[in-house]
Design a protein around this nucleic acid. Structure first.
Lengths: 340, 340
DNA sequence: TTGTAAGCGTTATCAT
DNA sequence: ATGATAACGCTTACAA
């Protein structure tokens, strides 16, 4: 049960230590020298009263509540939950806490959420947009706090951008599968209104074209990043006249669904069809066969995102755009083409 | 780039609408009647200035920043990321936002985090402790805000408790496996310093004992809820003199690891060994074979947790303890005992 | 080195 | 129905 005990304030500490509240403030902030002896008195009082500075009050006055707003489209997506984890880690190491917002991959909800976030006067915003059509970005212009557009960005943004080279990811996937002798492909994409999906697809298909084995009709399967959409794609795929021998899914969850869907109709991976995914978090090792995938450097992404915000606060010239590199991770779900 | 544009305050709105700031406040809060016409003027000014109430300021004054603190041991664990998702959903539907904290399953870190959280004067705390040895609970007594101890509780707590019937979960698992004719069992547990693990184990083993087929030596495998610990347990298990034909892992991640580990040494699930898990989120369908598991009603748990906090704020007699029920979900990883 | 006092942007308590 | 005005708990010039 919540007792309504009044909690000690800086005044109480000041009275107890026989100093002014500003002295107490100085002792805490350690920015301005305070006599050793009075310092000791103050610390004693703080301990005795179990005083904890009220960050709401200090946030109001100093205009920095030491918090970072993190907006993601889906909290429970393994990529984002891992991102949240790592962002939290770096943020807290710098004394910042996380205000978390789920936009539910819904543009309307996203606007509402951004509007809400703005009322909280966070020190910075890390934002992974729902899609290129998000009006939310406009709501974030000139808001007076650093904004890092994360993972999903739109060209011409006036914010900082942090992305991985998605086109490159597609190329890596294509190269890997071509190298295994495959000649007939499919790509299971996320919503193409998200530019990152379009970029990945572009890299993938251009590389294939250049090698003389373009993605044919039915070579583009549209999913929504969910396991279910991956499973559903399996049926679509098998219905086509020339079923591909190699598929790249734009995230691991869909790849896992695809494998499941294929297994359901008796198609074996990788013996009959090679499948690869993207992200590289938990899912690839859980799945059977273990998933060949393209990993994203989430930890580094998270760290850089927080750093960018802090740099923007402290330096005159904040970083504009940071691009990180995806990497191939070969496991068991891809193999040489069975019928070359 | 972050421009330092000053954002409109309630004073600006008041000036523009030719009213006092209290009137503006009244229009916004809708608690006190305001003349229709002046109301219109105020709303117009709000729109024109793009005014957004500063929740830091209002939080300071009203002692309610409309935020809930959520502390979990591991953000990227599927159970907790799903929990976070649902808590966020309910919280936001009530106008509350989420401050998220990761305790990293580390008691020392946990204390630091709780201490930190307390400075933020949230309206309520939902807390999933690291273990029974957590000193953190003491830090949370008499803090003046409602605290819901979630999932991991300790008897004698003066906070509200929200749990599932973990003993029952163990019984359900035992009954399912006994019903399939198994006579030789193992339980892959989480850290036994977490009472929920001990409870699950107690329910499981007591049921087995009563049926005349007790968990033998080596029947208790200790894991840490991670996929890796599940994979490692497979080796331990196969080394024992009478390897079990049925194993219950206390979460799905470990069950998935176990299946992987068994596959590595050529043991097939469920043909040779039946495996079941617990939680029921994403993992069971990704895994091959699909995992028989005991589901936790996360959505309901999340909703109840938020409700409990709100009730504690608003009613005289807050709920003390809420117990929810786990349910069996049969899929493909368990089957009749091969050698009865 | 320390104290005084003026805010930060609200809400709440008075009056009117 | 509306307006002054005093907090809320802190930071930060400015004085001393």
């Amino acid at each position: 049960v919540a007792a309504d005990r009044r909690v000690a304030s800086i005044r109480d500490v000041a009275r107890r230590a026989n100093v002014s509240i500003s002295t107490v403030s100085r002792v805490i902030s350690r920015k301005i020298p305070v006599d050793e002896e009075t310092q000791a008195r103050v610390r004693k009082a703080i301990k005795e009263l179990k005083y904890k500075p009220n960050l709401v009050a200090s946030g109001l006055r100093s205009k920095s509540a030491k918090s970072i707003g993190l907006l993601v489209p889906r909290i429970s997506d393994p990529f984002f939950s891992s991102l949240i984890d790592h962002v939290d880690r770096t943020a807290i190491s710098q004394g910042y806490n996380l205000l978390l917002f789920n936009t539910h991959s819904d543009p309307a909800f996203e606007e509402q959420v951004v509007d809400n976030l703005l009322r909280r006067h966070v020190d910075g915003i890390i934002f992974s947009m729902v899609s290129d059509e998000s009006r939310a970005m406009e709501l974030l212009t000139d808001v007076g706090v650093p904004v890092v557009m994360f993972d999903r960005v739109r060209p011409g943004s006036r914010h900082m951008n942090l992305v991985i080279d998605n086109r490159k990811a597609g190329e890596i996937a294509a190269d890997h599968l071509l190298g295994l002798g495959h000649r007939s492909f499919a790509c299971l994409t996320g919503p193409l209104t998200i530019s990152l999906c379009a970029d990945r697809l572009a890299g993938f298909s251009e590389r294939l074209e250049r090698s003389g084995h373009p993605l044919g009709t039915g070579g583009v399967l549209r999913g929504d990043f969910s396991f279910e959409s991956g499973a559903a794609a399996a049926e679509m795929m098998l219905r086509s006249i020339h079923p591909p021998t190699a598929v790249w899914a734009q995230n691991d969850l869909m790849a896992a669904g695809l494998i499941k869907g294929l297994a359901r109709t008796g198609v074996r991976v990788p013996e009959q069809v090679s499948v690869m995914g993207m992200d590289g978090l938990i899912v690839p090792e859980i799945v059977t066969p273990a998933l060949t995938t393209i990993t994203q450097p989430v930890e580094e992404m998270a760290r850089r995102a927080v750093e960018m915000i802090l740099e923007a606060k402290n330096t005159a010239v904040p970083p504009g755009e940071v691009v990180l590199q995806p990497r191939l991770m070969v496991r068991d779900s891809t193999t040489r083409c069975p019928n070359p």
